[in-house]
Structures are given as structure tokens and as C-alpha cells.
């Protein structure tokens, strides 16, 4: 039989499969009235430390769950399990980001929740394009990483709803141009709020807790008094 050469135009988004899974997750979260935050940042930026410091406070008012994404080990999940939150570890075994299908696969293991925080794999590059059905995206950037990271990894910071500048207590000990970082972040993403804190010193946590609370309140479609979480 004679073969015919054919040309097919597709114009198909390569991330469509993940976007479809994420859209299904978003509908599921909406039905459940569950607020979901995707927490991003480099390895060692302080994502887990931020959760360690804030989960006990958040757990007083919400039923909180955490999905921990790491290549290997359940070390972070063990750290957070002490907080009172329901914690599930996903080990990606080499993969550099979580995707919506991976998240969807563990939801059945979580109890009924008000707030789910997904701590993504430590990485400022790969998780950016993978929507997890979240309501908001928080990016943790530590003082010790250096002040050039927003310019080196702009897409992560462009997609953030809030940027948390962590390990602020180290500022006197490192060379760090805080005004320059603030200016860069304002240029890259004029709408994201910038919160400066030190999780291990438990200082500056209130604006972060208020931000989380505002995301929950927005999802629920009503305002709640701010004093509940942050007193």
C-alpha cells in the first residue's frame, strides 16, 4: 500500500493534561469549601520552618492539612505532624515538582479540612508551570539565599500572590540589599504582597497569618474578624 505524507496542525498546550487535572481539583476544592495554598521556595528557604511556626496557630481556628512534597524522606512530614495538622508526605523520587495528578492521588487520605497547604518540592524553577488547583501561591525567599534570586528566577515571583522574605534575623550577618530586593519584587509582581519574618524567632508572623486568613475568608465569600487567628 502506498504511504501518504500528512501534516497535522495541533496547537495544543503541553501542560494541558496537568491543567485539566488541576481544574478538576479546583472544582472539588470548591465543592468542599476547602482553601488551598501552594507553598513554593528553594530547598532550605524555610518553608517547613514557616509551617512549623504557624501551624499551631492556624490549627486553633481551622482544620488544617499539609501535603509535603519532597524527592525523598518523610523528615518534613514528621516535623510537621507534631503541630496538630493532618500531614501527608508525597515522595516524588526524583521528580522536581508536584503535579495535580500526584496531589489528587493523596486527597482521599486526608480528613475533612478547612485549609490545605501544599509544600511543593524545594525548587524555584520547575513547580511554576504546574497548577495544583490552589487558591493562592506563596513563595518563600530567605535572606541567606542572596538578594539576586528574584531576578534569576523571575517566573516564580511573577506568579506569586505573596512573597515571604524569611530568616530576617540573619540580616545583620549577611550582605543583603533589602531595598533592591523589594524594588525588584515590586517590578516583577506589583500586586503580590511582601511579608518579612523570622519563623524560628517567631517574629513577624502576624501578617502571614492574616494573609492566610484573608485567602480563607475570600474562598468562603465573607469576611471574618482578624483577631481570631492572630491574637
Amino acid at each position: 500500500m502506498e504511504e501518504k505524507r500528512i501534516k497535522v496542525a495541533l496547537a495544543r498546550d503541553l501542560l494541558q493534561k496537568n491543567k485539566t487535572f488541576a481544574s478538576d481539583l479546583r472544582s472539588r476544592f470548591a465543592r468542599q469549601g476547602l482553601t488551598v495554598i501552594n507553598l513554593l521556595g528553594s530547598p532550605g528557604a524555610g518553608k517547613t520552618a514557616l509551617l512549623e511556626a504557624s501551624l499551631p496557630l492556624l490549627c486553633r481556628h481551622y482544620r488544617v492539612g499539609v501535603i509535603e512534597g519532597d524527592l525523598y524522606t518523610s523528615r518534613d512530614a514528621e516535623r510537621l505532624a507534631r503541630s496538630g495538622a493532618a500531614v501527608i508526605q508525597i515522595n516524588t523520587e526524583g521528580a522536581c515538582h508536584l503535579d495535580a495528578q500526584l496531589v489528587g492521588g493523596v486527597l482521599e487520605e486526608l480528613p475533612e479540612l478547612d485549609l490545605l497547604i501544599i509544600e511543593n518540592v524545594g525548587n524555584l524553577v520547575c513547580p511554576v508551570g504546574f497548577d495544583l488547583g490552589e487558591d493562592a501561591r506563596a513563595v518563600v525567599l530567605s535572606i541567606s539565599e542572596g538578594d539576586d534570586k528574584p531576578e534569576k528566577y523571575p517566573q516564580t515571583f511573577r506568579t506569586a500572590d505573596v512573597v515571604i522574605l524569611s530568616k530576617l534575623d540573619l540580616l545583620p550577618y549577611v550582605s543583603y540589599d533589602l531595598p533592591a530586593v523589594t524594588a525588584t519584587l515590586a517590578q516583577l509582581n506589583p500586586v503580590a504582597s511582601l511579608i518579612q519574618l523570622s519563623a524560628t524567632k517567631e517574629s513577624g508572623l502576624t501578617p502571614w497569618l492574616l494573609w492566610v486568613k484573608s485567602v480563607v475568608a475570600k474562598k468562603r465569600g465573607g469576611a471574618e474578624g482578624c483577631h481570631r487567628v492572630c491574637k
Binding site: 500500500m1 497535522v8 517590578q187
Partner: peptide, 27 residues
């Protein structure tokens, strides 16, 4: 005034070419 980034994040399969013994359908 500040301009908004609108392009440069594409990851799109434009299309493909291939051989088809049964005279397959192009689009």
C-alpha cells in the same frame, strides 16, 4: 508606563508530520 508581560511562556505542540498507509486525515 509599565508594560505587562504577555508572551514567552508558551509550551505548545504546533503540530506534526507523518506517514499514513491508509490516507489519514489532515486538518
Amino acid at each position: 508606563l509599565p508594560a505587562v508581560p504577555t508572551g514567552g511562556t508558551e509550551l505548545e505542540i504546533r503540530g506534526y508530520e507523518g506517514d499514513c498507509p491508509r490516507g489519514g486525515k489532515e486538518n
